[in-house]
Structure formats: C-alpha cells, structure tokens
Design a protein around this nucleic acid. Structure first.
Lengths: 249, 249
DNA sequence: ACAAATAATTAGCCTAATCAAATATAATAG
DNA sequence: CTATTATATTTGATTAGGCTAATTATTTGT
C-alpha cells in the first residue's frame, strides 16, 4: 500500500509520454499525510496549516499548495481557512507509511543494534522507499510484531492498528504501580527519558504530585535494586502511557 | 560516504536561506555516477552521452545537462563531444553507492529470502537512502561479506574493491572444469541462467564450441547427479566469470 | 462593533530533473 | 574534400517541491 516505486521493468518500458502522474503519491505527499494523521489522532484534534508547517519544518504557503494538491488527488477534505481531515484513501496511505516506519524501527533496534533514540531518523527516510514485498518479508522475519521499540502499535497488513487502552502516567493513581507501555517523544527528550530508565515494560509509580505541575515518580528499572526516584514535569508524564502491571492487578 | 541526507536535527535548524546546495550529491546524481563507473569499468571503456542515456532510460539532452552539473560539482571530467571520465571524488561516490547496493542485495537474499533475480530492483532504490551508520551496522550483521549473491565484489569501508582475477567462461579451455564466480546479468536473462543452474559456486565446463558463436557447456549443479548440458550463445558466456575449481587445479 | 492581531492564501520566483524540437559538431562515405 | 549521417548540445517547456512578500480571512480584545 506504499510507494512501490515505478518499476519500468518489462522490456523497452514507457519513458517519454510526459505523464502528469495524477494518482502517484510521492514520498513528500506521504510525509504530509502521515503528519496530518498524527496531528489528528495523537494530539488534540484539529489540523491547521500552521501545525503541519511546524511539524514538517516548511513554510505555511508550501503547506497550502501541497494541501491543494492532496485535495485534488482525493486524499484530504479541505475548506478554506478550516482544518483539514484525511479521506479514507488518505488515511490508508498514512497508515501504510506508519506501518513501514514502525517495522523499520523494530528492525533497526532488534537486528542492527540501533539505540532506542537513533531509530527514528533512519526509519523516517526509509519508510518511503521500501516496497510492499520488502515490508512483507520483514514482518515475517520479525515475527509479526505488534509494537515498535517505543511501544507504538504497528498496523497489520490490512492497516488495522491494534487498539489497546493505555492511560497517561500523569493520570495514574498515586501509589499504584503501572507498567510503561509507550513513550511518545523523540530526540533529546527521548534520550533523557531512556536515561531515567523509562522504557516499555518497566514498572513505574507516582509518588507525589507537586503543586508546581511536576510529578515525582519511582522507576523500577531493575527488579533487584531499589526504585529510582525522579521528578518530571506533568507535560512529560502525559506522554508516557502506562497499563496495568501484570500480576499486580 | 553516501547520501546521509540532510539532517536539520539541531534545534531551529536552517530552513529558508535558499541554498544553491553546491556540494550535495542527489540520489539522481548518484545514479549517473554509478552508471558512468559501470560503463567505464565493466564494459569496453569509453562513456558516451548516449550510452548513459540508454542505461538510465532517459534522453540524451537530459544526460547532457546532468553532465554539465556533475562537471561543475567536480565529479567528472568532460570535454564537449568526448566521452566522460570520473574524477577521484566522483569515483568514490560511485563506489559508495555500489557498496550500498551489493550489501543490500546480500541482506535481501540472506535474510529476507529474496530470489536471486529479485534483489536488484529493491537494492537499486534503497542504495540511495541508507545512512553510513545503517551500512556499517549491516556489514557487521552480514559479517563483512566480500561478494554479493551474484558474485560481484563488495568494496570495503575504505571503498577498495577486492580485485580478484576471473576469466570469462567463453575463454575457458574446453574440457576443463571451472567454478562459477560471478554472473553479470539481470532480470529475465539472470532468471534464465539461474534456471539452468548457473549460480556462483557451481562447477561448469565447456564441452564444445560450435562454429555458430554458441557454446555447449556442462553444469554440475548437484554433485550427486550427472551434469546438466546446455547450449548458450557466446555473448552469454562472456558474462559468466569463472575461476579455478578448488581441488581440481 | 470594530480595530488589532493572527493565520491562511495568492502571486511570483527558484532549483532539480525531465522531455521534444531545433541546432551544432564529428565521423564517414563517395 | 565535400555531403550525409550519427551524436551531442542548446533551447524552451513541464512537474514537483520549496521560499518570500503581499494580500485576505478570521479571531479577539476592548
């Protein structure tokens, strides 16, 4: 469902003919669709031109003209000066790219010994250039993983995202231990959290909420040692998703 | 030494500034350089505009304008209406791409169960988008292979191609068994040769040369069975490279 | 209710890569 | 030593993606 780039393959292929290529989705378009999807579902709702511009590090006019193109291709719904939404087609393209991304991240971490915070940049590029065949074979090799190294769910071949219900660490009850399921951050922030021991699978517990929008938590990275205590801003705890601790229900 | 695409990374990176980008090598440029390298070393010498156009399936004017750009970037030497040659820089770029290509082919065949003739197309795309880090880790995982599934030598990290001396099967002495080392073909032709049992490692022997520019050969794909006999055109045998059969010197 | 501030769009231009048509150059055949 | 032919290059367009500056909508604060 992704790029599957032009395979001129068969003897004396096309060339010439100046195809306006009205239904090809380019890598850049894929990036826009993925960004729209993430803004729509992962943060709070409405997807405005300027939010897309910020995420992709381009200027608003650039986004405007791309949105026009995406609308003509039937990939988004748009009204002037209103937030955009994905069509079903557009959402499927986005999910395909996200699937590629998360599978690649898993591969990089499991087979190429990439660090937790290094996988993102590499996957962000390759996600647009791997063929469906490559992705199929890769999932088989990885034994059909359901989540990537950050705990993000990997859509299956039919693009159905395994929905599970996590809560935000910021909303967990104080004094109750939970298991880290997902850490939604990248770059420096991600590295910092990893250094604190916050990675999927680790038990954490809120010790105390301060009146200053920060939260003291206890992290049990290593079951044999005493928990590591850490004070994090509430905003950071909102991006750490946790679930029930198995055996400690 | 390859792409390592723009990593705006650090906070509030470039954007704007309208960089004419005078020393970036684009994926397309990499393709031209790789093609020039292959035409220069793998076939008979002189690299003309139209040969490049044929290989890349673009028109001669397109090649002309790209060659001008490559010359300005210091990647090729060129005089009007003369064949081009690579500068040292240009050759290094080409070798880097070839290294990426052959390593990817090896990975696809060894880990993702790609067929011998399927690896090329996938590697041809990905070769431009993998980072140096990716390639380094991949070589480690593959245990520093010295040749790809077709027997083509893989340049090492310093881009030195392991030179070995093969002879063409077409030039081998009749009645003497040799070992297939390299099969220089792609697509349909490659698939056909594979079906005949001609893959690296297999012992072959010229049975008889006909006066019609074709050659009868015996192929011992399976040591337990009797050799498979096949008549191939001489042109095909020129692209099958063989070496001495170990133990039968 | 209206001016000020904020956000989106339009207009016009740029680079990379491509093509077709026209032109120029080199090679070769009389 | 010209005339024909095969190549190469130049010219002028096109498409994709991007930018700046100017303009237009929308939202907000008084």
């Amino acid at each position: 469902m992704t790029t599957e780039p032009n395979t001129p393959d068969a003897a004396e292929s096309s060339r010439s003919e100046h195809v306006p290529d009205s239904d090809t989705v380019t890598p850049v378009m894929e990036d826009y669709l993925k960004t729209i999807y993430e803004l729509q579902y992962d943060r709070d709702g409405a997807v405005w031109t300027s939010r897309i511009a910020d995420s992709l590090e381009v200027t608003p006019p650039t986004v405007s003209s791309m949105l026009e193109k995406l609308e003509r291709r039937g990939l988004i719904h748009r009204e002037k000066h209103r937030p955009v939404t994905l069509t079903e087609t557009g959402e499927n393209v986005a999910l395909g790219v996200i699937r590629n991304h998360r599978l690649l991240e898993t591969f990089l971490a499991d087979y190429l010994e990439y660090e937790w915070d290094e996988v993102h940049a590499e996957a962000d590029r390759l996600e647009h250039y791997v063929s469906d065949q490559f992705v199929d074979r890769l999932t088989a090799m990885l034994e059909h993983p359901s989540s990537d190294p950050h705990g993000d769910p990997i859509p299956d071949e039919a693009l159905a995202a395994p929905t599970r219900s996590w809560i935000r660490l910021s909303e967990a009850e104080a004094g109750v231990s939970h298991r880290v399921e997902r850490v939604r951050a990248d770059g420096e922030r991600l590295r910092y959290l990893a250094d604190c021991g916050i990675t999927p699978g680790v038990p954490v517990e809120i010790v105390e909420r301060t009146p200053l929008e920060s939260v003291e938590i206890a992290i049990e990275s290593d079951p044999d040692h005493e928990p590591n205590s850490q004070v994090l801003p509430k905003r950071a705890c909102e991006r750490i998703l946790v679930g029930p601790l198995p055996g400690n229900n």
